[in-house]
Computed example of a mutant assay.
Amino acid sequence: MKNDELWLTLAIAAVWAALAAVYALVPSLGMPGYVRVWGGGAALFLVLAGLLAAVARRARR
């Protein structure tokens, strides 16, 4: 497993978290339900990044 996959997954999680923050902080959008969708997506990608890091750590042993 390459380290690039981990960084790509973390970058995706950062983008999803930024989108969740935009939906949460910009009142003119008026779409509070989407905050949960984008926040959930960010959390999912963070979990996936953690799994990738754990698998990479085990592969090195």
Score class of each variant (00 low, 15 high):
M1N: 01
K2A: 15
N3F: 01
L6N: 01
L6D: 01
W7C: 03
W7A: 01
T9C: 15
L10E: 15
A11L: 10
A13C: 10
A13G: 11
A14V: 14
A17G: 05
A17E: 13
A17F: 13
L19Q: 07
A20P: 07
A20N: 10
A20D: 01
A20R: 05
A21V: 15
Y23F: 12
Y23D: 12
A24S: 13
A24Y: 13
A24L: 10
A24G: 11
L25F: 10
L25H: 09
L25I: 00
V26E: 10
V26N: 10
S28C: 04
L29E: 04
L29K: 05
G30R: 13
P32K: 02
G33T: 14
V35H: 07
W38L: 09
G39R: 00
G40W: 03
G40S: 08
G41T: 07
L44D: 02
F45W: 15
F45P: 01
L48G: 04
A49T: 07
G50H: 12
G50Q: 00
L51H: 10
L51M: 12
L52E: 14
L52I: 11
A53Q: 14
A54E: 11
A56N: 12
A56G: 07
R57E: 11
R57L: 10
R57W: 14
R58P: 04
R61N: 05
R61Y: 01
R61H: 08
